[in-house]
Amino acid sequence: MRSALKWLLGVATAAFIVAAFTWAPEMYRPNFATGGSDPWPTFRIVFFHVPAAWLCVIAFLVSMIWSIKVLRGYAPEKDDKAMASAQLGQVFAILALISGMLWAWRDWGALWNWDPRQSSVLILTLIYAGYFTLRSSIDDPEKRARLAGVYSILAFITVPFLIFVVPRVMHTLHPSPVIPDAQEKGSMNTDMRVVLYSGVFCYLGLFAWVMSIRTRIEAVRRRLSTR
């Protein structure tokens, strides 16, 4: 069963990558100099950038949920899940950051623009870097789970501020984090959305798979160390 799911994920992800480059229709953007519109090939990075950004928020949310469970009653497996999810969230945040920087380099003119959304994701990676530093500085597993759990909850509370509120207070070039409606800048047609959502689906599958590997490794490691 597990191996069938793994193959399914592999095939789906391969299909998604091919579709993102070929099947998804060409996007055009207005050219204000000529009054017409130009093809916009760099737009395709959206299919890899947006799912990464969503998954980083989802992974941090999952980490917070497991942290709450740790605080309600400690079990090493719960703490493993909280940590594994935070690690994956960090990986997705860095992927979103890098893909965003590459896109900004081509379309906004510079790798780093101090755009509120760029800086929010950077601050998120700093917060979770702090989370891992805190974890590594406590030896007792139960205490580590408890204190890191509190910090993880506190950290996730700042996520809505950083992702949703601050970019509204400050000026941004970036479109809405949730899929924009038809009137807004950067709106997509149905085919594009299909590709984008299947990207999110593949990333979710990848997240679940790696998460299960990570927690199984931790379980084995704990069994070896207590024997």
């Binding site: 601050i123 870097a129 530093t133 500085s137 950290a155 700042t158 950083l162």
Partner: peptide, 26 residues
Amino acid sequence: IVAQAGVKGTLFTVLAFPVLVPVLVA
């Protein structure tokens, strides 16, 4: 948290600064 963790040094700044960014911005 830092006092309970029993760590000295820069951990407090590392943990506090990013959480305080929304206050700083606003």
